[in-house]
Design a protein around this nucleic acid. Structure first.
Length: 573
DNA sequence: GCCGTTTTCGGCCCGACTGTTTTCAGTCG
């Protein structure tokens, strides 16, 4: 069985958790977690690196010991060190870390004093009121554990960015209207535009005596108050989303914004530079001794450590600090750079708006073109087109283009990549189109090597242009199909094909890491909404956010170009 | 366990809030 990076990362994280519960050296624990992060965010396969006898120690946070452990995992599929740890510490204890309020120390106490090793046993102990008598625990703690067990049973998890956006915007507007509020901003992973968001972190600057904390707790959507203090409060919304509000002085706003935007790894890296320069950074500012030398703006904080402003989407400690230090941060794409959309459906197949309606909606959004890409025949549930129907559709588009002003409809197709790697429609009709989006809509569960070969074989077809929603994942609903994305992107580079970044908020496919890889390999990306309605065209902004997380500049993107320019690019080879 | 334009040893980011305590550890972000 092939070892994926995620498998290695899971083992290292598990070791981190077990060592934590055991009470091991915290820096050793961090080393395992750092190693896990490095491996999980790597665009290359560590298994292949091991096979190619590459030096794993070159990877950040991987030293002699972790390198040897990765090799053992790749070669044997398991790790003796983990097995030994699990003999020592019951594996079920790791589950207990999911209970907010229970950390390694308390879990260790529950285990040694009450013999609890699972969530089920914990629930049992709570209902028998056994927790409250333990040293360091009390009635309150027991009640909180009970609440958390219930919350976990209701399966609270990270929400999609688009859902977070719907919750965040009205809440932010509410806070900004409160008397005395000078500044309010949402920080955290929402500001970094991560594809999923765990909770919302909001930062406010207000004049003293303003009722912002009280009014926050009174917000209509609040279900319960988790904690509240003069500068920091947390609530649980009815939607199950936790919101933390933090109030700071204007002189600290930039430092706090940086701090609460994260990521944690980015902050640690920035603070490390500060320490080297005899500075201290916390959420109140940058300090030289006791003197505050920056903090009002993020720019000011970065400047103190010799860096330019780093856009929030890049703050993952994935090379942005080094790039900033060398003044080679990417000039990130913005929505204004987009000149058209290359993936849309109409009522001809499974869309909800007609050709003209979609064209006018695209024009309203300032676009120069809209690519119409109906499904091909294999997608029967969507009424996919066969060759004759597609020809008739092409003629419809031609006729409409003669009447339309200020917008051009491009003649495309979302053609299925069949199991053997062939395309669902013959070449003669595909050649009548302006371009193709080629997608997988069936046989999601092929083995990795076959799925990868299927897509790469499809790229050999001279009619292939853009690989649609390359991983097939639906966020929080369906995992990506098992493919070697690095190989696919390399193939696209070699064969002159393109990758889609599907901007639909349920997809956001490619992800940030593979976008960055595509950019590094020189593969251009189409950011497309896959709109099935005029409303669907609005998803472009989610694609832009994701693209920025992938370091994309306007030049890396197909649809920042005019149609005449694109036309040349689509002449493959 | 990792890492090194001060170091191969001795560091490793930092503060608020809670609950259980009588001055603070644990947890969280």
């Amino acid at each position: 069985m092939p070892i994926h990076n995620a498998d290695v990362a899971e083992i290292f994280n598990r070791i981190g958790d077990l060592l934590d519960i055991k009470g091991d050296n915290p820096f050793r624990i961090r080393a395992y977690r750092d190693g896990a992060r490095t491996v999980s965010e790597l665009s290359r396969s560590v298994a292949e690196m091991v096979e190619g006898e590459e030096d794993l120690k070159a990877l950040p946070g991987i030293g002699k010991d972790l390198a040897a452990k990765i090799e053992e995992i790749v070669r044997t599929g398991s790790l003796s060190f983990l097995e030994k740890l699990e003999e020592e510490i019951p594996a079920g204890l790791v589950e207990l870390l999911r209970i907010s309020g229970l950390g390694p120390r308390k879990i260790n106490a529950l285990y040694t004093k009450l013999g609890i090793t699972s969530l089920a046993q914990l629930r049992e102990a709570v209902s028998r009121q056994k927790i409250r008598d333990l040293e360091g625990f009390g009635e309150k703690t027991e009640q909180n554990i009970r609440k958390e067990l219930d919350r976990l049973a209701a399966s609270a998890r990270r929400i999609k960015l688009s859902t977070a956006d719907e919750i965040a915007r009205p809440l932010l507007a509410y806070l900004r209207e409160i008397k005395g509020v000078r500044l309010a901003e949402i920080a955290g992973s929402y500001r970094r535009r991560m594809e999923t968001v765990g909770d919302l972190d909001i930062l406010v600057v207000h004049v003293s005596g303003s009722p912002v904390m009280e009014r926050f707790l009174d917000y209509d959507d609040v279900q319960s108050v988790v904690s509240h203090g003069p500068t920091r409060s947390s609530v649980l919304l009815k939607s199950g989303v936790q919101v933390d509000l933090r109030a700071v002085g204007a002189e600290s706003y930039g430092a706090a914004l940086l701090y609460f935007t994260g990521s944690k790894a980015h902050n640690i890296a920035v603070r490390r530079i500060a320490v080297k320069n005899d500075l201290k950074i916390n959420e109140y500012g940058v300090f030289k001794g006791k003197k505050r030398v920056a903090g009002r703006t993020e720019e000011g904080v970065y400047k103190q450590v010799g860096l330019p402003f780093i856009p929030p989407e890049l703050r993952e400690d994935r090379g942005e600090i080094e790039a900033a230090a060398q003044d080679r941060l990417p000039n990130l794409l913005t929505l204004g750079d987009i000149r058209g959309d290359l993936h849309a459906h109409t009522t001809r197949t499974d869309g909800h708006a007609g050709l003209e309606e979609m064209a006018l909606a695209a024009r309203e959004r300032g676009y120069e073109y809209l690519g119409i890409t109906e499904h091909s025949r294999h997608v029967t549930v969507a009424g996919g087109l066969d060759a004759d129907e597609l020809r008739a559709h092409i003629r419809d588009i031609d006729r409409l283009n003669e009447q339309l002003e200020g917008i051009i409809l491009l003649k495309g197709i979302e053609v299925d990549i069949l199991e053997d790697g062939s395309l669902d429609l013959p070449g003669d009709v595909l050649r009548e189109l302006d371009y193709t989006v080629c997608s997988v809509h069936s046989r999601f569960n092929l083995a990795r090597d076959r799925q990868t070969a299927r897509i790469i074989r499809a790229m050999d077809n001279p009619c292939f242009h853009i690989l649609g929603h390359p991983s097939g994942r639906l966020i929080n609903e369906r995992p990506p199909y098992d493919i070697d994305m690095e190989q696919v992107i390399r193939a696209a580079a070699a064969k002159g094909c393109f990758m889609e970044l599907n901007a639909h908020p349920d997809r956001l496919d490619l992800n940030d890491i593979h976008l960055k890889l595509a950019r590094e390999l020189g593969v251009k990306v189409a950011i497309s909404t896959d709109a099935h309605s005029t409303e669907g065209l609005n998803s472009m902004r989610f694609g832009i956010w994701q693209a920025r997380r992938g370091w994309l500049e306007p030049g890396d993107v197909l649809n920042t170009r005019s149609w005449p320019e694109l036309k040349k690019i689509f002449r493959r080879g």
